[in-house]
C-alpha cells in the first residue's frame, strides 16, 4: 500500500495525542493550572494536528463534514465521530482542570474511554479490510492501542507504567510482524483464485496498460520493502528500546525529552512500514505483491 505521508502523520500524531488524553482523563498526572494547560495543549495539538493532516489526502476536504453521517456501517465515520466526541468531552474536562482546578472525575473517565475508542476505530479502518491480509488481523487493533496507551503513558510522565507498556508495545509489534509476514499466504488468495483459471499454472502475461495507473500507485507500493528488516530494527529501537532505557535511568527532563522524541520517530518509522509492507490482493492481478 502507498504510504501516504498524510496518513502516517495522522495515525502517528493523533494516536499519541489520544493516548495522552486517555491518561489525562484518568487524572494521571493529577495536574491543575498552567501545568495542566501545557499537558492539554500538547495532547490537543497532537490529536487535532493529526486529524487535520488526515484531510490533506482527500479529493474534496470541503465535504469532510459528510463523513460523520455513516457511523452505522463505516469505521472511518465512527472514527470521526468518536474523535470529535473525545475532543469535546476532554475540552470541557480540561477547562475544569486548567481554569477551575476541579477534576470532574466521571467526565474525565468518559473522555478517556472515548479517546481510547477513537484510536480503536482508527485501527479498525485498516483491520476491517479483507483485501489487505496483513492488516486484517486482531493484532492490528492491539498494535494501535498498545502504541497509543504506551506512548500516552510516556507523554503523561507515568514512568513505571510507561516502561512496562512500551515493552508490551514492542512485543506486540514483533508479534505483528511475525504473523503479518504469513498473512498473504494464509489468506488463500492467489492469481488462480483471482482469475478463476484453474486448468494450469497462471502467469500475468501482459498488463492492461503500458504505463502505470492509480491502482498500481496506490496498492502495489514496493519501493523500500527491501530495506524492511533494517527499518524494523531501527523503528523498534527508537519506539521502544531507547525510551525504555531512558526511563530506567534516573529521571531528568533531558532524558524524558529524548525518550519522547525517540518514541515519536520510532512510531513514524514502523507506521511507514505498516503501509509500505502491506500487500493488497489486487496486486495478484498484476502479478506483483
Amino acid at each position: 500500500m502507498h504510504p501516504a505521508p498524510s496518513v502516517i502523520i495522522f495515525t502517528t500524531l493523533s494516536g499519541l495525542g489520544f493516548g495522552l488524553l486517555a491518561w489525562l482523563g484518568l487524572g494521571l498526572p493529577a495536574v491543575t493550572g498552567i501545568v495542566a494547560f501545557i499537558f492539554f495543549a500538547i495532547a490537543f495539538g497532537l490529536a487535532v494536528g493529526g486529524l487535520m493532516a488526515s484531510t490533506f489526502h482527500l479529493g474534496h476536504p470541503e465535504r469532510a463534514l459528510k463523513a460523520f453521517t455513516q457511523w452505522r456501517s463505516s469505521w472511518l465515520s465512527r472514527e470521526g465521530v468518536l474523535a470529535v466526541a473525545a475532543l469535546l468531552v476532554m475540552a470541557v474536562y480540561g477547562f475544569g482542570v486548567v481554569f477551575l482546578s476541579v477534576q470532574w472525575t466521571l467526565l474525565g473517565w468518559i473522555g478517556s474511554l472515548l479517546s481510547a475508542l477513537a484510536v480503536f476505530a482508527t485501527s479498525m479502518i485498516y483491520a476491517q479490510l479483507k483485501t489487505v491480509p496483513r492488516w486484517n488481523l486482531p493484532l492490528t487493533p492491539a498494535l494501535f492501542m498498545s502504541f497509543a496507551i504506551g506512548g500516552g503513558a510516556l507523554m503523561a510522565g507515568q514512568i513505571k507504567v510507561a516502561t512496562v507498556l512500551l515493552i508490551v508495545a514492542g512485543i506486540v509489534q514483533v508479534a505483528y510482524w511475525i504473523v503479518g509476514d504469513r498473512a498473504l499466504l494464509g489468506s488463500g488468495s492467489t492469481l488462480s483464485t483471482a482469475t478463476g483459471l484453474r486448468f494450469g499454472a497462471v502467469r500475468a502475461f501482459e498488463p492492461p496498460h503500458t504505463g502505470t495507473n492509480y491502482l498500481l500507485k496506490e496498492f502495489a507500493y514496493v519501493v523500500g520493502r527491501r530495506h524492511s528488516m533494517k527499518l524494523r530494527v531501527i523503528g523498534l529501537a527508537l519506539m521502544a528500546v531507547v525510551p525504555v532505557l531512558c526511563l530506567l535511568l534516573p529521571f531528568s527532563h533531558v532524558l524524558a525529552a529524548v525518550a519522547v522524541l525517540s518514541h515519536l520517530m520510532g512510531v513514524a518509522v514502523v507506521r511507514w512500514l505498516f503501509f509500505a509492507e502491506a500487500e493488497h490482493v489486487l496486486g495478484l492481478y498484476y502479478g506483483v505483491r
Binding site: H57, G59, R63, A67, Y214
Partner: peptide, 27 residues
Amino acid sequence: SDCIGCGLCAWACPYGAREMDAVAGVM
C-alpha cells in the same frame, strides 16, 4: 457530489474496480 475522495472504498475492493479520478477528486 457526496464523495470526499478518501479512497477507502478502492482499498476495500479486491478487484481494483474503483479508481480515483485525479482531476475530479472523486471515486
